[in-house]
Design a protein around this nucleic acid. Sequence first.
DNA 1: ATGGTCGGTCCCCGA
Length: 263
Amino acid sequence: MTLSVAAWNVNSIKARLPNVLDWLQAARPDVACLQEIKTVDEAFPLMELQDLGYNVKTVGQKSYNGVAILSRLPIDEVTLTALPGDESDDQARYIEAVISSGSGAVRVASIYLPNGNPAPGPKFDYKLAWMKRLHARAAELLALEEPVILAGDYNVIPRDADVHDPAAWEGDGLTRPESRDAFAAIKWLGYADAFEQVDGRSHQYTFWDYQAGAWNRNNGIRIDHLLVSPQAGDRLKSVGIDKDVRGREKASDHVPIVGVFDL
DNA sequence: ATGGTCGGTCCCCGA
């Protein structure tokens, strides 16, 4: 039995609802981790998504951020609605759940990692602190020896090969060595970047800015990632980036990335 | 081409 798991920063679920519904109906992912829903839980369009057969769990916030997990399979338990380690952090950027698949339980997190710009500065400090907390949680999850999929917008461009013009992004919070090192450190724990494991091609992007004709010029970056534990990585079959979604009317600036697992 | 575009709102901020 296969399990497909998607990550997609929708940049407002309300502005994107027709596109999101169309894509879910066409791609039919078993699990979809959404970021930047930009709404409180009460205003999330629950019915429309339930009508497509999805169970829905959200961690929302007014105006900014907000994450969701949609699943065609039962969501057994929401294990976390925030990253541990900072009680004062009230930004809605993390939700983690246990999902029942054909072969047992799979743990999935929907992650919206802070952008961190302008860097350096307090926002960049917050990004790095958040990444440390994610590192700690990722280590705890590895110890469970379960299939774990950490899916979302990491706001990190891992390699120069993941950006159209590395020079143009020099010094940006998405490419700074501190950001790349923190991302690599999570992988060093024992996670794999699903895209790099099965594909690894250069210049495959998940985000194109709205400005300056970035989409038409293919000036993109790869910042949406699926990090997978060994128990998930061993069963990873394919990864796809649904690039065409970016060319639609009223598109998000991000497109979905989908991993298919034998789970 | 040293700019530009979205989405959310307290009329500017975040990306």
